[in-house]
Each structure stands twice: as C-alpha cells, then as structure tokens.
Deep mutational scan, measured.
Amino acid sequence: MDALKSAGRALIRSPSLAKQSWGGGGRHRKLPENWTDTRETLLEGMLFSLKYLGMTLVEQPKGEELSAAAIKRIVATAKASGKKLQKVTLKVSPRGIILTDNLTNQLIENVSIYRISYCTADKMHDKVFAYIAQSQHNQSLECHAFLCTKRKMAQAVTLTVAQAFKVAFEFWQVSKEEKEKRDKASQEGGDVLGARQDCTPPLKSLVATGNLLDLEETAKAPLSTVSANTTNMDEVPRPQALSGSSVVWELDDGLDEAFSRLAQSRTNPQVLDTGLTAQDMHYAQCLSPVDWDKPDSSGTEQDDLFSF
C-alpha cells in the first residue's frame, strides 16, 4: 500500500511530472533526481522514447528462454528487412502500455495491464526491452520488442512496467475491499429498513384510530445511509488515497477476473515476472533518469539497429 499512497501523494503535489519523457535525446524537461521519484509518476504514465523492432507469436506467457528466442527472431526479421526502425513513445501506467508513433502521434497499440504476463531486458541484446501480452483480438500470446538507447534504459522500462503492474494490483485490492464494505453496509441498511417496515402498523389501523404518522421519526431512520450505499452501487469504487486528485481509476471486468485468478494461483500475485536478476534490479533502481541518457562506457552510441 505504500507504493499506492506515495504515488497518489506525488501526483497530487505535481501532476505535471508524469508528462516528462525519457530517452528522447535531450528533449525532456528537468528530471527527478532518483528512481523513487520517477516511480511516483506512474499514475498518469511515464513516457519512454524507443524504437519498435516488431512482434512475434509465442506459445507460453512467460520465460527467459522463451523471450530470448522470440527477441532473436524479431531482431533477425528487422535486420533482414533493412528498413529504419519506427520511433515510438511507450506510455507506461497502472492501466497498461500505450504505444504511439512519434511522427504521426497515431495510436499503435493499447495493452491493458492485466494482459501483460512478462517483461524483460534481454541478456543477449542488452539494449532490447520486450514484453509478452495476450492479444486483445484473440487468445494468442505476442512478444513485442523495442530497441532502447542503452542497457540502462531497457532495464528502466522493464522495472517501470513491473512497478505499474504492482500498483494496478494494489488498486484492485483496495477497490475489492471498498466494494465488500459497501455491499455489507448496503445489506445491513436493508435489514434495518426491513425491520422498521415489519414493526410499522398498517396504514388502515392508523387511520381508524385517528393517529398521525410521525414524519420526524421517519426522517431519523437510516434511510439516507441505505440510499447512499445503493444509489451508486454500479459505480466502481476508487482508492481513497486518490481522493481529490485528477486521476480516475476504473476497474473493468477483465482486470477484476484476471487479478482474482492471480490472487488464487500465485504466492506473490502482485509481482510481474521479469528477466532481471536481483543485481540488475538493484543497479537500475539506483540510477537517476539522467543516467539513462548518458552514453555507455563501451563506446559511442549508434542510432541504428545494427549497432548491437
């Protein structure tokens, strides 16, 4: 819950932080000083300027060897085509990944977070970031790969997607708890209302004896509580940590079903599988986004697919 609360507080303090972009060759504004600060901008989305290598189908939802083989196929196909790589912007948030063309600003792909089953910074092609997700059109699994400016960037994108998945799962947990509370309150309110109706004398007997209905007592009954809980029953509950912020979080049926399955089948359902080692994760978390744009010590960066 700490990640969720800190993310909400950060967004309320400075929503404009989320509009910064990394990996864009110096076009961005001043960047936060450390990885923790940038992680807090996830709610509205972190932007990464990358190059799209392509996509291939895979048979399993996750796995280092599986993704490595898929990336190898994608890279080989991209090299064989001889075409310049498409420059894209990857927007990562707890909602998922939005992929747009840098030149036309046209939407290429919009992947809900619950469809993503794996992401990684490839070991062999260490400047490549990739994720595996279920197609929104059918049940097939797709591996999408992107060329980053350097290994640090690939690791940073991988960690960002993993963190977005974690925050999304926490949102789901909060929403589920809130819905259970509202359902319980609604049920209790309905029981109270039913009890009051059972003990209320029939209207005919009131008229016969000349008694008047006590409207004041009726007004004191917990009807307002019942209506408050039943009027918006169809509205999706939102985490309290975000009250007053500009973010509107809505959970669709697909996300609810997917996270429910994860909660039942996995020990740590909030953790998205990645190909990063503990050492890689520690190294990337210690980086400032400013470091992502620094040239690798191995030599001059080449803006070309064939540089790796």
Rank of each mutant, 00 (worst) to 15 (best):
D2C: 06
D2H: 04
K5C: 06
K5Q: 10
S6P: 10
A7M: 11
A7N: 13
G8P: 08
G8N: 11
R9W: 15
R9T: 15
R9F: 10
R9E: 03
R9I: 15
R9S: 08
A10L: 09
L11Q: 10
L11H: 04
I12L: 15
S16P: 09
L17C: 12
A18T: 04
A18P: 06
K19A: 15
K19W: 12
K19D: 14
K19Y: 14
Q20G: 15
S21W: 00
S21Y: 06
W22G: 02
W22I: 10
G23S: 02
G23R: 02
G24T: 10
H28R: 05
H28Q: 03
R29N: 11
R29A: 08
K30T: 15
L31E: 05
P32F: 14
P32N: 14
P32Y: 10
E33L: 10
E33Q: 14
W35E: 14
W35Y: 07
T36E: 10
D37K: 09
R39Q: 08
E40C: 12
T41Q: 04
E44P: 13
E44A: 13
M46I: 15
L47C: 08
L47N: 03
F48H: 04
S49C: 12
S49G: 14
L50C: 11
Y52P: 05
L53I: 05
L53E: 13
L53V: 15
L53Q: 15
G54E: 02
G54M: 07
M55I: 13
M55S: 06
M55N: 13
M55F: 13
T56G: 13
L57N: 07
L57D: 09
V58K: 14
G63S: 15
G63K: 03
E65N: 07
L66Q: 06
L66D: 13
S67K: 03
A69F: 03
I71Q: 03
I71L: 13
I71D: 07
I71P: 04
K72R: 03
K72E: 07
K72H: 11
R73L: 12
I74Y: 09
I74Q: 06
V75N: 08
V75H: 12
A76R: 10
T77S: 11
A78W: 01
K79W: 13
K79A: 10
K79C: 05
A80F: 08
A80I: 13
S81N: 10
S81F: 01
S81W: 10
G82L: 13
K83E: 12
L85N: 11
L85S: 10
L85Q: 14
L85Y: 12
K87Y: 14
K87Q: 08
V88I: 14
L90I: 13
L90D: 14
K91C: 13
K91W: 01
K91R: 05
K91Y: 15
K91D: 11
V92F: 14
V92D: 09
V92I: 06
P94F: 10
R95G: 15
G96C: 10
G96F: 09
I98C: 03
D101M: 04
D101Q: 11
N102Q: 08
N102P: 12
L103R: 15
T104W: 07
T104K: 04
T104F: 07
T104N: 00
N105C: 01
N105M: 05
Q106G: 05
L107R: 14
I108N: 05
E109F: 00
E109H: 05
N110G: 08
N110T: 01
N110P: 04
V111S: 15
S112I: 09
I113R: 00
I113Y: 07
Y114L: 00
R115K: 11
S117H: 09
S117K: 10
Y118A: 01
Y118R: 12
C119R: 09
C119T: 05
T120W: 06
A121N: 14
A121Y: 05
A121W: 10
A121V: 10
A121Q: 10
D122H: 12
K123M: 14
M124C: 09
M124E: 12
H125N: 10
D126P: 02
K127W: 01
V128M: 15
F129S: 08
Y131K: 05
I132N: 15
A133L: 13
A133T: 14
A133D: 10
S135V: 14
H137Y: 07
N138Y: 14
N138W: 14
N138F: 11
Q139L: 14
S140A: 08
S140F: 05
L141W: 04
L141F: 04
L141C: 10
E142F: 07
C143W: 15
H144E: 08
H144L: 14
L147T: 09
C148S: 15
C148E: 04
C148H: 03
K150T: 11
M153K: 12
Q155G: 02
Q155K: 11
A156Y: 05
T158F: 01
T158N: 02
T158S: 05
T158P: 06
L159A: 09
V161W: 06
V161H: 00
V161N: 02
A162H: 05
A162F: 03
A162W: 08
F165Q: 01
F165G: 01
K166G: 15
K166F: 02
W172L: 01
W172G: 01
V174Y: 01
V174S: 02
S175R: 02
S175V: 06
S175N: 05
E177H: 00
E178A: 01
E178C: 12
K181Q: 02
D183A: 08
K184M: 04
K184W: 12
A185D: 13
A185R: 12
S186V: 08
S186Y: 01
Q187Y: 05
Q187R: 10
E188W: 11
G189F: 06
G189S: 02
G190N: 10
D191M: 04
D191C: 13
V192W: 01
V192C: 08
V192P: 08
G194T: 01
R196L: 08
Q197V: 07
Q197D: 01
D198V: 04
T200V: 04
T200F: 02
P201L: 05
P201R: 04
K204F: 13
S205C: 05
A208C: 09
T209M: 08
T209W: 08
G210F: 03
G210E: 05
G210A: 04
L213K: 11
D214W: 09
D214A: 01
L215P: 03
L215D: 03
E216Y: 15
E217C: 05
E217G: 03
T218E: 07
A219C: 04
K220D: 00
P222A: 09
P222I: 09
L223S: 03
L223Y: 01
T225Y: 15
T225A: 11
T225Q: 10
T225E: 08
V226Y: 09
V226R: 06
V226L: 10
T230L: 13
T230D: 09
M233H: 07
M233N: 05
M233K: 07
D234N: 04
E235K: 06
E235L: 10
V236N: 02
V236S: 04
P237Q: 08
P239L: 10
P239Q: 12
Q240W: 00
Q240M: 00
Q240P: 14
Q240H: 04
A241K: 13
L242S: 04
L242Q: 10
G244Y: 01
G244M: 03
G244E: 09
S245C: 08
V247G: 11
E250M: 12
D253G: 11
E257Y: 00
A258Y: 00
F259Q: 07
F259R: 02
F259P: 05
S260G: 15
S260R: 00
R261W: 01
L262C: 04
L262S: 01
A263K: 03
A263P: 01
Q264A: 08
S265P: 01
R266I: 09
R266Q: 05
R266L: 00
T267A: 03
N268C: 01
Q270M: 06
Q270W: 02
Q270S: 04
V271L: 15
V271M: 04
D273E: 13
T274F: 01
T274N: 04
T274Q: 02
L276S: 05
L276F: 07
T277Q: 07
T277P: 08
A278I: 07
D280W: 01
D280Y: 11
M281S: 01
H282K: 09
H282C: 01
Y283E: 00
A284R: 11
C286K: 03
C286H: 06
L287F: 01
S288Y: 01
P289L: 01
D291C: 07
D291I: 06
W292K: 00
W292N: 06
D293N: 00
K294A: 06
K294Q: 02
P295M: 06
P295R: 05
D296M: 15
D296F: 03
D296L: 09
S297Q: 08
G299N: 13
G299M: 02
G299D: 06
T300E: 03
E301P: 06
D303Y: 12
D303Q: 05
D303C: 03
D304P: 02
F306R: 00
F306W: 01
F306Y: 03
F306K: 00
S307V: 11
